[in-house]
C-alpha cells in the first residue's frame, strides 16, 4: 500500500481510495463494482464490513450496510471477498469494520485471517488509539497496517500518539460529523492537513468524510494530502442503480475516472 502511495507521489498524484460496503447489495456484486473502480483508477480499495450500529456513518452508508446485512454478509464473508479482489486485481485493500464484529471473532484470529487473505490495513472507526493496545499487538504480529483516525477536535498531544500508532496512512476526518455527501469541503480539513504536515515524522495522510467531488479531491491533493478517500458519493451510485448492475459499473468507472484526474497536484 505504501508503494502505491509512493508511486503516485513520484508522478505528481495523490492516491485515490475508493470505498464500497462489501456485500451491498449482494456479495457477488462487490467484486464487479471493485473492478469498475479499479478500471476508473482507484489506487487503494477500502472495503467496509457491515455492522448493525454504524454510529460514525450518515444515512447513505447506513442504508448500504443495511442492504449488506440483509444479504447475510458477515465479517468472514467480507474477508473472502477481499481475498478474491486482491487475487484478481492486486489492488491494495484496507478493511473498515466497527470493533464488535472483530472483537467477537477475536483479534488474533481476525488479523491472521486478514493477513492471509491479503488485507493491507484495517480501520476501526470506534476504536480510539487509547483503547487499541491489544489490537495493535495482534495487527503487528500479522503484519497488517493499523490506520487510526484524527479529527479536527484531536489535541496536539493525542495527534502525536495517533500518528505514531498509524501505519500505512493516517485517516484525517475532514469535518465534525458523520460520513456523507457534502457540497462544500470543510475548512477544518485544510487546517488539519497543515497540522499533520508540520510534523517531521508522520505517515502518509489520507482525508475522508464528506469528500464527494473531483473539486474536493483536487483541493485536498493540492493542499498536500497524499491520499483522498471517497465513500458516500460512490455508495450513492450503487444505491441509485440497485436494479441495473451494468449501468452501475459504467457510472462507477466514469465517476472514479473524474476523481482520479483530479488527484494531480502538480502540472
Amino acid at each position: 500500500m505504501i508503494d502505491a502511495f509512493r508511486r503516485n507521489l513520484d508522478s505528481g498524484h495523490a492516491s485515490l481510495i475508493g470505498y464500497l460496503t462489501a456485500g451491498d447489495p449482494r456479495p457477488e456484486y462487490t467484486v464487479r463494482y471493485s473492478e469498475a473502480l479499479i478500471r476508473g483508477g482507484v489506487d487503494v480499495l477500502e472495503l467496509g464490513a457491515p455492522f448493525s450500529d454504524p454510529v460514525a456513518d450518515g444515512i447513505t452508508i447506513q442504508a448500504s450496510t443495511q442492504r449488506a446485512l440483509e444479504a447475510g454478509v458477515t465479517l468472514r464473508e467480507v474477508l473472502k471477498i477481499a481475498s478474491e479482489i486482491r487475487n484478481k486485481y492486486g489492488t491494495p485493500i484496507v478493511l473498515l469494520s466497527y470493533l464488535n464484529p472483530i472483537y467477537r471473532m477475536g483479534f488474533n484470529m481476525f488479523f491472521k485471517e486478514a493477513s492471509s487473505r491479503g488485507v493491507d490495513g484495517v480501520v476501526v472507526p470506534d476504536l480510539p488509539v487509547e483503547e487499541a493496545a491489544e489490537f495493535r499487538v495482534a495487527a503487528q504480529e500479522a503484519s497488517v497496517a493499523t490506520v487510526f483516525l484524527a479529527s479536527p477536535t484531536t489535541s496536539d498531544r493525542r495527534l502525536d500518539t495517533i500518528l505514531k500508532a498509524s501505519s500505512g496512512f493516517v485517516y484525517l476526518v475532514s469535518l465534525l460529523g458523520v460520513t456523507g455527501v457534502r457540497s462544500e469541503l470543510s475548512a477544518e480539513a485544510l487546517r488539519l492537513i497543515d497540522r499533520v504536515r508540520a510534523r517531521r515524522e508522520r505517515p502518509y495522510i489520507a482525508v475522508g468524510f464528506g469528500v464527494s467531488s473531483p473539486e474536493h479531491v483536487s483541493m485536498l491533493a493540492k493542499k498536500g494530502a497524499e491520499g483522498v478517500i471517497v465513500g458516500s458519493a460512490i455508495v450513492k451510485i450503487v444505491q441509485e442503480n440497485l436494479s441495473d448492475p451494468e449501468r452501475c459499473e459504467a457510472r462507477l468507472e466514469e465517476f472514479t475516472r473524474k476523481l482520479k484526474e483530479a488527484t494531480r497536484f502538480k502540472d
Binding site: 472507526p125 476504536l127 480510539p128
Partner: peptide, 20 residues
C-alpha cells in the same frame, strides 16, 4: 483511571468525541 470496571467500560467512540 482508564474508565474501567475490571475489564468492562472504556471509551470506544469515534475520534471526534474523544476530547469531548
Amino acid at each position: 483511571e482508564s474508565g474501567r470496571f475490571g475489564v468492562f467500560g472504556g471509551r470506544y467512540v469515534p475520534e471526534t468525541l474523544v476530547e469531548a
